[in-house]
Deep mutational scan, measured.
Amino acid sequence: MGFKLLSKLLVYLTASIMAIASPLAFSVDSSGEYPTVSEIPVGEVRLYQIADGVWSHIATQSFDGAVYPSNGLIVRDGDELLLIDTAWGAKNTAALLAEIEKQIGLPVTRAVSTHFHDDRVGGVDVLRAAGVATYASPSTRRLAEVEGNEIPTHSLEGLSSSGDAVRFGPVELFYPGAAHSTDNLIVYVPSASVLYGGCAIYELSRTSAGNVADADLAEWPTSIERIQQHYPEAQFVIPGHGLPGGLDLLKHTTNVVKAHTNRSVVE
């Protein structure tokens, strides 16, 4: 069995187990497998329904001669939608809004960016022009300005110390501490036991640490421990890039980060 097929099978099995364990909360999309990078042309966006009122959005972007996937989250909030992270750029984010209108038909009224990198804030200006209120932590807003990236308009308070959590509509926002970046936030959907790890969490097929220019490698494993301790009931975990899975993604990420750190020390 090929690795790609095995990865998709694991996603399907995880979703099936969740649907059985929580039949009222989960209505997993039966329309197909989780979209992969090879299936999404740059400039297009796919939506994948995880649970009743919960979707991931998947886009792709060219970077350094390669094409990478990027995940975000959409959560229903009454007759409105909360968006977590842009679709990595203005063109993708405009396509995301169009796809949401086509498939869901509810307005996106608020959006949260989970850290300051372009795959999370690139497209904020498109959201703002569409009347979406954009939010991020003060740290993310400051770092985005320093980096020359787009800056969300509103500040999220109460997320300055490791372990801080605040309720934001249908989700809980959690600051686990520094990891992929010093400002990275985690998003949890309690009604569906869905954990969105953003770039602080890796997919299972990833074996290298990737972009760690703004990471705190020493603190990252401790931050992941905080996530595990705060959300032990999480059933569906979405990484910032690639295929979702279960809580095993947290341990896998820790292993990859520690291996990278150990290699760096040896070198």
Rank of each mutant, 00 (worst) to 15 (best):
D29T: 08
S38W: 12
P107R: 15
W55F: 06
Q49T: 09
M18H: 11
A136Q: 03
I58V: 14
A218F: 10
I58L: 15
S155K: 12
A90R: 10
T114N: 01
S16K: 06
V146T: 13
L243A: 15
G197W: 03
L159T: 04
K102E: 12
I40M: 15
S181F: 02
Q103V: 12
S139I: 13
V37Q: 15
I201D: 05
A179K: 01
E233S: 11
L97F: 03
G123T: 04
A130D: 09
D119V: 03
I100S: 03
G169Y: 05
T60M: 15
L143S: 07
A200P: 03
A21N: 13
D52Q: 10
I100Y: 04
F26A: 11
L47T: 09
I224V: 11
E99V: 13
A90D: 14
N71K: 04
D52C: 04
D183T: 01
L10D: 13
S31D: 09
E150W: 01
S191M: 11
T14H: 14
G105A: 11
E80V: 09
P221V: 10
A129S: 11
A19H: 06
S205V: 08
G32Q: 09
E33N: 10
I17N: 08
A59T: 08
E101L: 08
D216N: 12
V11Y: 07
S193W: 10
T93P: 01
V75T: 04
G163A: 09
S264G: 11
A165I: 13
A15M: 07
D214Q: 07
N262T: 11
K4Y: 15
V146A: 13
I201R: 03
E172R: 03
Q49W: 09
S27P: 14
I74M: 04
S223E: 03
T140M: 03
Q229D: 14
T114G: 01
L204I: 13
G2D: 10
L204F: 09
L6F: 07
W220T: 00
S162D: 11
R167N: 10
E80H: 09
H180G: 00
N262P: 10
S30C: 07
D164S: 13
L47H: 05
Y202N: 15
G43W: 07
T254I: 11
Q61H: 05
V132N: 01
K102A: 12
L24K: 10
T109F: 08
I58T: 15
S193Q: 12
A200W: 01
T182I: 12
C199A: 00
L217R: 04
D119K: 01
E33A: 08
V45H: 03
I224L: 06
I151M: 09
